[in-house]
């Protein structure tokens, strides 16, 4: 029968082993996998400002990016290729705030520079590789 000492050894030994494996994989992910998939060297100063604005305005509080965030507004990882820069600009500069089908987006008073920065960020995001996410819909959209 398992003794308390053996149970303790199982807990401490198992935790240490899997923690070390996790750290090794994390180091590899951060130094190889993530840079290869996201190309941070291609992030312009504009895109960096856009990323900062994304956080500062808690865009994740309604949208998702890389599938992460709230579920009140569309996923934006591929919004640059899906909708294009002009559409994004129109959304961000709508005089009364964007209101698709009655759902209200916060009315932001972004400067032109900030709008350009957010578009640059979405463009950078568009070129990331996320292991196939978001998936292409299996069926065509109904007309």
């Amino acid at each position: 029968m398992l003794s308390k000492k053996q149970a303790k050894t199982f807990f401490l030994g198992g935790t240490l082993l899997f923690f070390l494996i996790f750290i090794a994989l994390s180091v590899d992910s951060l130094s190889n996998g993530i840079p290869e998939n996201t190309h941070p060297e291609k992030m312009s100063e504009q895109a960096k400002l856009g990323r900062y604005l994304w956080d500062k305005n808690n865009c994740m509080g309604c949208h998702t990016l890389m599938g992460e965030g709230a579920y009140y507004a569309p996923e934006l990882t591929r919004v640059y290729s899906r909708k294009g820069p002009d559409y994004i600009r129109a959304v961000l500069t709508a005089p009364e705030g964007w209101q698709p089908r009655g759902r209200k987006m916060v009315k932001y008073d972004f400067t032109d520079e900030e709008v350009d920065a957010l578009i640059a960020f979405f463009q950078w995001m568009n070129d990331t590789y996320l292991n196939g996410f978001p998936p292409e819909p299996m069926m065509a959209q109904p007309q």
Partner: peptide, 18 residues
């Protein structure tokens, strides 16, 4: 911990991880 530590990986599937 045996399952949960490496289980963190399910958050890395589609967020830029290898």
């Amino acid at each position: 911990f045996l399952s949960g530590i490496l289980g963190t990986g399910h958050h890395y599937y589609y967020t830029g991880g290898p």
